Computed example of a mutant assay.
Amino acid sequence: MAGGTEPDEKRQGMSPEQVLTTALELNASFEEEPAVLEYLVNHHLAPNVKRLLDPFQLSALMLNRAETEESQDIYLRNLWKQARKDIPELMQMKMVYDHKTSTYLFGKWAEFYRKNDKIINSRVKMRTSVFLQKTIVSLNAYRKTRSEIVDFYMKFLTEWKDDRYISMALDFVEQSLKEITDRSVLKDTLNMGVKLAELKKSERTAEKYRERLKTLDED
């Protein structure tokens, strides 16, 4: 049997659980070599991993624990590809992603929305909200990158000033609080809830989150 064929055949016979375990092991084994990890995930594991992981979780596999600049750049490049699939209007942005793009990606994205307000309708805003929420969920193990995405999401919500999307974000916070176990991420999510409640001018809701933050700090 050819040397390059046997690993592929063995991989095809792996159970979904084994594929997931292998993907996580790769993430740990190659965290100092994110470019190698990206190649392995995209070209060797992707067909099987997709049965278990959505595209957001798959992209998150490319981040290392230190969330280094190189791994963030690779992560954002893959996330941007997904964004252009999920939000077709972004295809109108004539921007080629390179190693420098990560430093201004979110700024250019926000600028595109501001300058093209006629096409940024409720459908685009809904797609954007869903996309960013899925992204945030997939980053619960990567606090630095998660915080950047949350800030970007909050920026849109602040600019849109629409209670529909703010309420949608508050529902997202409530659901996230039921699922998050990490104390630091829990605190970040409660702070997000406070900001959203203040944006909605709901002092009662903001106070609810402040009380939970206070209780968390006291534990």
Rank of each mutant, 00 (worst) to 15 (best):
I119Q: 06
N116K: 06
E38S: 14
K195G: 07
L58F: 08
D73F: 08
Q72Y: 08
S122D: 14
W109R: 05
D54N: 10
A23C: 10
D219I: 13
L58E: 01
A35E: 10
W109F: 14
K50A: 09
L20R: 00
K187L: 07
L170N: 03
R183L: 08
E69W: 13
F56K: 05
R143K: 15
M1V: 07
E89N: 12
R143E: 04
A197G: 03
K201S: 11
N42W: 10
G107R: 11
Q175F: 11
A46H: 08
L63D: 01
E203G: 11
K50P: 05
K94W: 09
E33K: 15
I166P: 01
L132S: 02
L58M: 14
S15I: 06
A169N: 02
L177A: 00
D73R: 13
S147Y: 09
D117L: 11
H44W: 13
R77L: 05
A23G: 04
V173T: 00
M126A: 12
Q57R: 13
I149P: 01
T21N: 15
P88K: 04
L26I: 12
Q82G: 01
R84K: 13
S59F: 06
N116S: 07
D162P: 00
P34G: 03
E203L: 13
L52E: 12
Y209A: 00
D182E: 11
E207H: 13
R164W: 10
G3C: 14
K214G: 07
E159K: 15
M168Y: 07
Y113G: 06
S15T: 11
R114M: 09
M95I: 12
G13S: 14
E33N: 15
E31W: 02
E207P: 02
A28W: 14
R212H: 06
L90S: 01
E70G: 07
S184P: 05
I149C: 08
